[in-house]
């Protein structure tokens, strides 16, 4: 089966006053139809830029240079015309952003905002698009959708607004949905509801998903596979099952030990990763994580490790990958069922 989306050796850099910022550096992955991939990393790891590059949404950055290939249904999105791209944006590829209030038009009724995209992409008539919009709002769980579609975004709660965003993103039945921290601004129960909704609709409609987040919990709830990024580079790429059972890269392992977890004792200690991530304007020689890693070899400081394949569906950019793959399990058994 040929992949729906294939990203090949993508690099993105911006020219800024402070120097050249390399936001994505040598990223490759592929995504089949209906699959879901989580991209995880701290702020500034390049996870958002990599997803925006898929739609060439660079906005304010004029001096951006991009290399590599982004093949979507066989066509290179970095080379298609603007006109063609705007058919794909919101049509075959939908997006949901973090803050629904700034992504929605504050003076346009929500129903119309959903219908707008339907009209643009399918050429449906106004009444047709309106009917479809109400149907979509109903489907994402807006109560009384046929009445509430006349209301403006401000009269909706945060969770309901994010549902509206999901409705817009899915209205044209895209092949791929890109969600960038879609629930970070929401409360816990609402976050769980929205993720549940996204996951269900996605499966029902056979849509592939790229979920961008800093939260392993969100990844665990929505993704089949995970890509861990650090300092603009991919560190580890594996199935969700592997991530929690046998994370290979020392950075992934460090990230997993950072967060308080329910499997830990009540007042356990966290293990922060010493040091700071490198500035993206610096030239990085060798492995970007080497200065903070407790397993650093001389080689790590000189040569950048490639993504080593260490098993089916598991790659790790660490010179010690093969050796570390031999280890039985993580010391604190985070995958144990509760």
């Amino acid at each position: 089966m040929s992949a729906l989306l294939e990203v090949k050796d993508l690099s993105v850099s911006f020219e800024t006053r402070g120097g050249v910022v390399r936001a994505v550096d040598g990223l490759s992955f592929s995504l089949g139809a209906g699959e879901s991939l989580g991209i995880v990393g701290e702020s500034g790891s390049g996870k958002t830029v990599s997803s925006l590059s898929i739609l060439r949404l660079f906005g304010l950055f004029d001096d951006v240079s991009v290399s590599g290939k982004i093949l979507f249904e066989g066509r290179d999105l970095l080379r298609v015309s603007e006109a063609e791209l705007s058919r794909i944006r919101g049509g075959k590829i939908g997006m949901v952003f973090q803050d629904p209030l700034t992504s929605l038009n504050p003076v346009m009724p929500v129903g119309e905002q959903v219908a707008e995209s339907i009209r643009f992409h399918t050429g449906a008539s106004r009444p047709q698009a309106h009917r479809r919009a109400v149907e979509m709002l109903d489907r994402v769980g807006i109560p009384d959708a046929n009445k509430r579609c006349e209301e403006l975004p401000h009269s909706f709660s945060g969770g309901m607004r994010q549902r509206v965003m999901v409705a817009i993103a899915l209205a044209c039945e895209p092949k791929l949905l890109i969600a960038d921290e879609p629930t970070t601004a929401l409360d816990v129960t609402v976050q769980a509801q929205v993720l549940l909704l996204l996951d269900e609709l996605r499966r029902e409609m056979g849509i592939a998903l790229i979920m961008i987040t800093h939260d392993f919990g969100v990844v665990a709830a929505t993704a089949d596979r995970v890509l861990v990024m650090y300092a603009a580079q991919p560190m580890e790429h594996c199935s969700i099952h592997h991530l929690f059972q046998r994370a290979n890269h020392p950075y992934t392992e460090g990230l997993l030990r950072l967060v308080p977890r329910f499997e830990h004792q009540v007042h356990g200690r966290l293990h922060p990763i010493e040091g700071q991530p490198p500035a993206l304007t610096e030239e990085i020689v060798g492995c970007p994580f080497a200065p903070r890693c407790s397993f650093t070899l001389d080689r790590c400081k000189q040569e950048r490790p490639p993504l080593f394949r260490i098993g089916p569906d598991h790659e790790s950019a660490c010179w010690l990958a093969a050796e570390r793959a031999e280890r039985e399990t993580l010391p604190d058994k985070p995958w144990k069922a509760v």
């Binding site: 709660s157 969770g159 309901m160 816990v188 129960t189 609402v190 976050q191 769980a192 509801q193 993720l195 549940l196 996951d199 939260d215 392993f216 919990g217 969100v218 990844v219 665990a220 709830a221 929505t222 969700i240 099952h241 929690f244 059972q245 997993l256 967060v259 977890r261 329910f262 499997e263 985070p334 995958w335 144990k336 069922a337 509760v338």
Partner: peptide, 26 residues
């Protein structure tokens, strides 16, 4: 609330289903 916590492990999806029952709505 406890069901809505997204635990970082391989069982998050199954657990999340309980939210529907215990913390529905706004």
């Amino acid at each position: 609330l406890v069901a809505a916590i997204l635990r970082a492990d391989g069982f998050a999806r199954q657990r999340l289903g309980q939210v529907r029952r215990l913390a529905a709505g706004d």
